[in-house]
Design a protein around this nucleic acid. Structure first.
Length: 191
DNA sequence: TAGGCCATCTGGTCCT
DNA sequence: AGGACCAGATGGCCTA
């Protein structure tokens, strides 16, 4: 990608038009006329140039660190995509979709466990251990979460669902893989 | 072509 | 002081 540094050459005035030194001098023009530059350079030219180089190097290093940081973030996001159920069309989830999907998915898994435990309690059986292979896949159709009233069921605020969705009836048969199909139509941005 | 997504740069702020 | 984190700006790419 093009960088602003592609425009940078020996003319440091273009790259660092406003320095702290300038601030301390009381707001000098962005690029003083040549005469002033000559005046200021006398006796200080070398050190100012050095300062510019140091600042530039510091910026470049910061850019590099920031790039690596974002790469690490993307790697983590990819890892998260890897443990989420895949879409049939194998389209890659965007970043925001991945985060929201993961949030929904975790909620659905925990909710399924809760229901399973409830049912086990009714029948006197031992709590059911869920197979992750049969884990529910949360989608837009699974989002009437706030209606359950359970603290463990605090709903994602962005979940757009109808009050009459099956979740309110604790019917988890709807938590099927095909719930994924509605995810792409999920309305994002509602927090 | 407009809009969405993304990578990158950048300056500010906080933390160690 | 230097690094981590964050948010805004910018430009490129892709798709409907």
């Amino acid at each position: 990608m093009d960088s602003v540094y592609s425009d940078i050459d020996s003319n440091s005035c273009d790259f660092f038009p406003h320095t702290d030194d300038e601030d301390s001098r009381g707001g000098s023009p962005l690029c003083p006329p040549p005469e002033q530059q000559k005046k200021r350079r006398r006796g200080r030219a070398r050190s100012e140039a050095t300062v510019q180089v140091v600042k530039k190097n510091r910026r470049l290093k910061a850019n590099d660190r920031e790039r690596n940081r974002m790469h690490n973030l993307n790697d983590a996001l990819d890892a998260l995509r890897g443990v989420l159920p895949a879409f049939p069309d194998e389209t890659k989830l965007t970043k925001i979709e991945t985060l929201r999907f993961a949030h929904n998915y975790i909620w659905a898994l925990s909710e399924t466990i809760r229901i399973a435990d409830l049912q086990a309690g009714k029948t006197g059986d031992a709590p059911l251990l869920l197979s992750l292979g049969e884990a529910p896949s949360p989608g837009s159709d699974t989002c009437s979460w706030s209606s359950s009233g359970s603290s463990s069921s605090s709903s994602p605020a962005y979940c757009a669902s109808s009050p009459g969705s099956p979740a309110a009836q604790e019917d988890y048969s709807y938590l099927q893989q095909d719930a994924l199909y509605g995810f792409r139509s999920f309305v994002p941005g509602i927090y």
